[in-house]
């Protein structure tokens, strides 16, 4: 399959089940909501060392938020519910509670077959040292915690759902600037979509990994088959003209969300095309042994007319 001169590999991205939650952060204005959201999603690129993969989903207008203030939707993904709950609590406590004028609300209440309620502000309330106030409106409970700028308000719980992590594709280009430009185009298009995040810096990862290493202590190491400088000394996946490879990793609330994000991202890259130095699109997988979700590149791109 070739789109605008870009060859789409007959391979698939291998993804696995994760647990995810969404938090809506509101503040006096978008700037301060973003400060909290940026801090909360900091150091959250990969579950390998960060505990969670997190990102900013989108900005919310005052009409979309529970308290009628500008807000930001944040998605957090983890490999299990226990680590997600722990990370949510510490990040809420250090990044949202601390940020002036913010409030936090549940971002998942319905629309998924299985929603587990997990603590959002339930334990943060104890920061109030007895002065915290509970308020229940409708079926939802909120906590008002007195803080130095006024009151920090947070919903007691948010919804956790089964989600999918590790959707990805690789962009193989003639040069590093061209690979990066293609990634920027893809990320810019994918950021318009709901329910997905691209957790790496700027949405792009350059250090794709393989499982295992020659060193016993390493569980993952550089994906030498895609390292352009090793073309001559390893079982390379790269043809001579490829000089740079970058990867976009996607976590989504459902497989369909990842499907759509991959389609939109790959299409944006292909729109730049061979003329912009893009030669191939490939994907990272482990031979189908690791994850139950297989996103087949050619199937995804064949469906683009229907989407």
């Amino acid at each position: 399959m070739i789109i605008n001169g870009v060859s789409i590999d007959d391979t698939f991205a291998e993804a696995f089940g994760m647990r995810a939650t969404r938090v809506l952060i509101t503040a006096q204005n978008h700037t301060w909501a973003m400060h909290a959201a940026t801090a909360m999603t900091g150091f959250a690129t990969s579950v390998i060392a960060c505990g969670v993969e997190a990102g900013i989903e989108r900005l919310l207008s005052p009409e979309e938020t529970p308290d009628g203030r500008p807000g930001v939707a944040v998605l957090l993904f983890a490999m299990g519910s226990a680590v997600l709950m722990k990370q949510l609590e510490t990040r809420m406590g250090q990044c949202v509670l601390t940020c002036p004028t913010t409030a936090a609300f549940s971002g998942i209440d319905s629309g998924y077959p299985e929603i587990t309620r997990i603590n959002l502000g339930k334990n943060l309330r104890f920061f109030g040292d007895g002065f915290q106030i509970s308020k229940q409106f409708g079926a939802k409970r909120y906590w008002r915690v007195p803080v130095m700028d006024g009151e920090f308000m947070t919903e007691e719980t948010t919804g956790m759902v089964r989600a999918v992590g590790g959707g990805n594709f690789l962009i193989l280009a003639e040069s590093q600037p061209q690979a990066l430009a293609a990634c920027e185009a893809a990320i810019s298009a994918m950021k318009q979509l709901p329910n997905v995040i691209m957790p790496f810096p700027g949405g792009v990862v350059r250090s794709g990994s393989k499982v295992g290493a020659k060193y016993k202590s390493m569980i993952a190491s550089t994906n030498d088959a895609f390292c352009p400088t090793l073309k001559g000394i390893t079982r390379t996946e790269l043809s001579p003209e490829i000089e740079s490879v970058m990867e976009i990793v996607i976590d989504g609330l459902t497989a369909e969300d990842i499907n759509r994000a991959m389609r939109v991202g790959i299409q944006a890259v292909c729109d730049l095309g061979r003329a912009a130095g893009i030669h191939r699109i490939s994907a990272g997988n482990y031979g189908g042994k690791l994850g139950p979700y297989h996103f087949k590149l050619r199937e995804i791109m064949r469906a683009r007319g229907a989407a």
């Binding site: 529970p66 308290d67 009628g68 004028t101 308020k135 409106f137 909120y142 006024g150 009151e151 308000m153």
Partner: peptide, 13 residues
């Protein structure tokens, strides 16, 4: 005197 954001939520409800 204070401006309490929770009142927005309450009045909305």
């Amino acid at each position: 005197t204070h401006t309490l954001p929770f009142l927005n939520l309450m009045f909305k409800s």
